[in-house]
Design a protein around this nucleic acid. Structure first.
Length: 450
DNA sequence: TCTGGGGTCCTGAAGCCC
DNA sequence: TCTGGGGCTTCAGGACCC
């Protein structure tokens, strides 16, 4: 995720350039999604509780994510990558692997470097943001190279130098080593990649189990044969909500589960899928998480069926003490097409109830006037033009009037119900050329496989 | 005022079938 | 006939990733 969201916001809002920007959930239980490099100086980083970030960087700008806006930028970048090769594997909105050799875009270090530099220039020209490129012979190494390259750089890991490079690095650099595995290894006296190699494969399997042990040992030797996979099938669809305050009322818990089931089905149908296994997730007041699942006889995308299954699953869960998060998911997915003749016969394709808000439901639904002004979102004013919400509350909304290619703008305050003020779509950031950093497509050039 | 949301993969237990 | 074991599926939990 890096600084993508924050860089996009800085490109979109001239007054934030060069400033500490933190994007994430603004509620009492929010966490940081992305911090700009200026905010990282204060120690703010992704996944940090927002409250802690505010303590560290009280003067930073705090914004909620605008996924639709980021997605539109992401699509521009992915299109540039697909022009290089048919083998593009997106990891998220801001990262992807590209098999340059498969596209004939590069065949040796020199051509790869040229391709990478041209790509970075194109990303900058098209999106106004900077991206970093890592070039290497495998996905793991390309990713490590891109980490080293950012912000705004290009790093090549040359064949033959891999083991020497990895050896002194922390085990945490290897994919699949998170806090738990890192601790596990540390307790066994293994801190660096070369200590993994010294420990040997058998010891690793003994410590971490078969799959993880073998896999990690290979990675430590810089062996990574994972191919770049262009099309990944979705395996599950889920939605979840963390509540600002724990829910104690059992009836309310039941209602929330029904809402989540509906939302999940809407997503499922939107993707043209149906599924067999319904999963209920409950995070309790003490952060302990449990899941309950039920597998149906056949795949469904029927909201009533998913609601009922979720309700049955909830019956087996003790929620006394309160719950902080609820989630509903569907896995065991099938193509929607082979489907539900039975459901159709029963006239069971009733519309899934719409949510009162949410990205898809959108603007046309009535929203309380106070809630229409989301911090960071775009607005337009009949007299002052385009701007964004800098804050709202107590019946007032503060707007900064500026556009991606204007000078930093002035701030004005209005009544929340001011009829001259309206919600607006984000403006394209394009001719702007002063992003700070962000997109980092890993570019990976593989040797010929036998 | 700790700890989001949407995913993937792996492991181990238990039940069932052959 | 009894027992053992392998393989498969389902379920729950945990770790990891961005």
């Amino acid at each position: 995720m890096d600084a993508f969201f924050a860089s996009a916001e800085q490109a979109s809002k001239p007054s934030l350039r060069g400033k500490a920007v933190v994007v994430g959930g603004l509620g009492p239980r929010g966490v940081v999604a992305t911090a700009s490099y200026e905010a990282r100086v204060f120690g703010v980083h992704s996944a940090m509780p927002m409250a802690q970030a505010r303590r560290l960087a009280p003067n930073a700008a705090y914004l909620v994510p605008r996924f639709g806006f980021y997605r539109s930028i992401s699509e521009q970048v992915m299109a540039l990558l697909r022009a290089l090769s048919p083998l593009v594997e997106p990891l998220s909105l801001d990262e992807a692997f590209v098999d340059l050799e498969a596209g004939g875009a590069a065949w040796d270090e020199g051509s790869a470097r040229l391709t990478g530099e041209k790509l970075r220039a194109d990303i900058r020209a098209v999106t106004g943001l900077t991206g970093s490129v890592g070039l290497a012979a495998s996905k793991m190494l390309a990713k490590i190279a891109s980490e080293q390259a950012k912000p705004d750089g290009l790093v090549v890991i040359e064949p033959g130098t891999e083991r020497g490079l990895l050896g002194p690095m922390s085990v945490r650099i290897l994919p699949g080593v998170g806090p738990a595995t890192g601790d596990h290894l540390r307790r066994a006296g293994i801190h660096t990649v070369e200590e993994i190699v010294e420990a040997g494969e058998d010891e690793l399997v003994r410590l971490l189990g078969k799959a993880h042990g073998h896999g990690l040992y290979a990675m430590a030797l810089a062996h990574d044969e994972r191919p770049v996979v262009a099309e990944r099938e979705t395996k599950s669809v889920s939605v979840e909500d963390t509540y600002d305050v724990d829910i104690h009322d059992r009836l309310r818990v039941g209602m929330e589960v029904q809402r989540l089931a509906d939302r999940c089905v809407r997503r499922l149908r939107g993707a043209g899928l149906s599924g067999r296994t319904i999963v209920l997730k409950v995070r309790r007041y003490d952060f302990s998480t449990l899941t309950r699942s039920e597998t149906l006889r056949g795949p469904t995308d029927d909201p009533a069926v998913v609601r009922e299954a979720a309700a049955r699953l909830l019956e087996s869960v003790d929620t006394t003490g309160g719950v902080r998060l609820l989630g509903v998911g569907v896995s065991g997915l099938a193509d929607y097409t082979q489907e539900d003749l039975f459901a159709q016969a029963a006239g069971d394709l009733a519309e899934v109830p719409e949510e009162e808000s949410g990205e898809a439901a959108g603007e046309r639904v009535e929203v309380p006037v106070e809630r229409r002004w989301v911090t960071g979102h775009d607005v337009t004013h009949a007299e002052y033009g385009h701007g964004w919400v800098q804050g709202s509350g107590l019946g007032r909304v503060t707007v900064r009037f500026e556009t991606p290619d204007s000078e930093p703008g002035r701030v004005r305050t209005f009544r929340v119900e001011d009829p001259a003020l309206a919600v607006a779509e984000p403006l394209p950031v394009v001719p702007v050329v002063d992003g700070t950093s962000g997109l980092r497509p890993e570019v990976c050039s593989r040797p010929h496989n036998p």
